[in-house]
Design a protein around this nucleic acid. Structure first.
Lengths: 197, 197
DNA sequence: ACCTGAACACCGTTCAAGT
DNA sequence: ACCTGAACACCGTTCAAGT
């Protein structure tokens, strides 16, 4: 079911909300938490009061942007499930998810500081991602290509770390390298090779 | 050579500086960047103007705290060099370094956002750590126990990620787990086992 | 030579007045 | 119903006045 039925509103109010979302998307993506509420209102062409009427505070607006990204993550997870090689599925899922947020500084901040969002608002989206990603992890377990104790929580931890590299050491090279090391880290521990399928 | 010879000062001025450092240490450690300059001045028992006379801005004070920690890191690196097993040396170095900063939120912030500090001021300390850590990495290379392409820069990247877990997901469990995964990731890739020493 | 704190700047948030 | 922006609160930083 969709989050909550859209209440009917005055046309101008609805248009304002859209413009605020667009402005927020643009400015948070570009400058992260440094984006100012004033600027966002101006960019949206509304008064600061209207911004606050739509979103109780800065976090709430950011949370709304984050929701959209999580839906994208779910898409990536669904796509990754189609990949035959179970290890490659994990690599692609992490790689693609990170690649899309490379241009979105605001999301990077949100992804790291998980608990600081109004997380109730996006619990559904997070769950959807968790479910899809867990299926991918399970498949890798079944194939024996990852550490036996790897969980979705590990994913969360590693994504936090990877995102911090993206955020604090901007540029593609560092987070790609970080990802490579981490992917190596979640592989099955070197055990006696049994290739008698 | 020591950084720069201490200029002689009026006794009260020197005592004030000490108290500011102590207050900064305590409050940054406890609350990170949330610690306010006003509080620090009050805790130190000086006027806000005196604080700013000693340190041009908040970053500069934080940087001073960071310098001390880096010196500790160098100690750890030196100690880790004594450990016989070259892989264990790396594990202990990372583990100990992280363990000391667990109670120092301010340093955690600094460790992640490297370039935002007055880094000229602590270049010497950073170099000392880099040198010691590099020796430990080289030894592991010589023993063939880590990936052939592992560098000190990787250490920097991984420490950033590990610290972000510590900062954003407080509690021992998550960063310890993160460290375990990462240590697994830097090991030599599973190659045909040649144990004919 | 050094100290102090009132005052300023900046930015998130509120609310009285408007349509 | 909804919009607006002046005003407030908070915190980093400056500077004129003091000793």
């Amino acid at each position: 079911m969709p989050p909550i039925a859209e209440k009917p509103r005055r046309a101008d109010a609805r248009r304002n909300r859209e413009r605020i979302l667009a402005a927020g998307r643009e400015l948070f993506a570009k400058r992260g938490t440094d984006a100012q509420m004033d600027e966002i209102a101006t960019e949206a062409g509304v008064g600061i009061g209207t911004l606050y009427r739509n979103f109780p505070d800065k976090q709430a607006l950011l949370t709304e942007m984050v929701r959209a990204r999580f839906l994208e993550f779910v898409q990536f997870a669904t796509a990754a499930e189609q990949i035959e090689d179970p290890l490659e599925a994990i690599e692609v899922l992490l790689g693609d998810s990170l690649a899309v947020i490379e241009g979105d500084v605001g999301f990077q901040v949100a992804m790291m500081g998980g608990q600081e969002l109004e997380s109730e608002g996006i619990a559904a989206e997070k769950d959807a991602f968790a479910t899809a990603a867990t299926r991918i992890i399970e498949r890798a377990h079944a194939a024996g290509v990852v550490r036996g104790d790897l969980t979705f929580d590990d994913f969360t931890i590693l994504l936090c770390g990877l995102t911090s590299t993206m955020y604090f050491k901007p540029g593609r090279a560092d987070w790609r390298r970080h990802l490579e090391l981490v992917l190596n880290g979640i592989r099955a521990l070197p055990t006696p090779d049994r290739r008698h399928l």
